[in-house]
């Protein structure tokens, strides 16, 4: 038996590693790199997809920051029909599980994109209510539990495939939002999306990112992400709702900490940009840890945090 295999809301994943939306295009881009294989990931989340095509934001879209980067791509995508007709048929579903990332400007758009993906070979849908880089929709839905629940309920009504809700760290009480989403029918969570940030060029006195603000990712946000995973896990563990923990994960040790905090799978995104073979290395490191600790399955680590007598971490803030 593969010790890295894990069940994630009904999906049988060969590894707890999930390659994250917005980092790997529509699933084939990283296969350009010799030695990279989609089989190294348990699942791959495709680029955020809207009902109609979107050109995305004006340049510059990325900027390096201390231990991380800002991005504001603006949901550039060819629209859901193109994705289903032209892209999905070219993916090899024998290699890994493919998850769509659903975006919209209205509740109706989220539901319609979800409905169209429901009638496709896609394995699951991630509802992106936390994109910080578009004017309408995105994080506007993700910051308020009531709005988040509305989107989730509308999507839930049109699909029986697993629904993963991608939560924003840019909100007051992430656990309360998770609770509202579970009640509305969410099957899983992705924790966290990027944090909002900004960069300015002192010479030109202009913002560097074309969109003015961007989403911060990379190792810089890892401790924040870890805490948010812990908080959401504490809230939803009794429902058995699994989490994709994500935010600056680059090594097997990082992945282990997220598993211990309660995430069933771990997302890798920005790390791929400097280490395209990161997934392979993390798999090897996890297997070695399981072996040296006499564990038969990575599932035994999920939520196995030993808090000792420490005070409870406040559920919000």
């Amino acid at each position: 038996m593969n010790p890295l295999a894990i069940d994630f809301c009904g999906l049988k994943l060969d590894s707890p590693i999930v390659l994250l939306s917005g980092c790997v295009g529509f699933g084939e881009e990283y296969t350009r790199v010799a030695g990279f294989s989609n089989t190294d990931a348990g699942a791959i989340v495709l680029k955020g997809t809207t009902l109609a095509p979107r050109l995305g934001n004006a340049p510059h879209r990325v900027w390096e920051t201390p231990a991380g980067m800002l991005n504001a791509i603006g949901l550039q995508n060819p629209g859901v029909d193109h994705v289903i007709r032209e892209i999905l048929p070219k993916l090899d579903f024998d290699e890994t599980r493919f998850i769509a990332n659903v975006c919209g400007s209205t509740v109706e758009e989220y539901a319609e994109v979800t409905r169209r993906f429901d009638d496709s070979p896609i394995d699951a849908m991630e509802i992106n209510i936390s994109c910080p880089n578009v004017r309408e929709g995105g994080v506007a839905f993700g910051n308020y539990p009531g709005m988040s629940a509305q989107v989730v309920a509308a999507c839930r009504a049109v699909t029986r495939k697993p629904l993963i809700v991608k939560l924003s760290p840019n909100q007051t009480d992430i656990a309360a939002n998770a609770r509202a989403c579970v009640d509305a029918g969410a099957d899983a969570f992705a924790v966290i999306n990027t944090l909002m940030g900004m960069a300015i060029d002192p010479e030109t006195r202009q913002p560097i990112i074309g969109n003015i603000q961007g989403g911060l990712s990379g190792p810089a946000i890892r401790p924040i992400a870890l805490l948010k995973v812990h908080q959401v896990y504490e809230e939803v563990r009794r429902d058995g709702t699994p989490i994709i923990g994500q935010g600056g994960i680059e090594t097997a040790d990082d992945a282990l900490t997220f598993l211990l905090a309660g995430s069933a799978t771990v997302g890798v995104g920005t790390a791929l940009f400097y280490d395209p073979l990161a997934a392979k290395k993390i798999n090897a490191g996890l297997a070695s840890y399981l072996d040296s600790h006499g564990l038969g399955s990575v599932a035994e680590l999920v939520g196995a945090l030993d808090s000792g007598d420490a005070l409870d971490v406040p559920a919000s803030g």
Partner: peptide, 24 residues
């Protein structure tokens, strides 16, 4: 400015104009 360098992130786009209009 470029992040992934392999087509995964769409961070380094440029607006181009062709027969089908604008594209990034």
């Amino acid at each position: 400015y470029m992040a992934c360098g392999v087509g995964g992130c769409a961070g380094c786009t440029l607006e181009v104009h062709g027969a089908n209009g604008a594209a990034m």
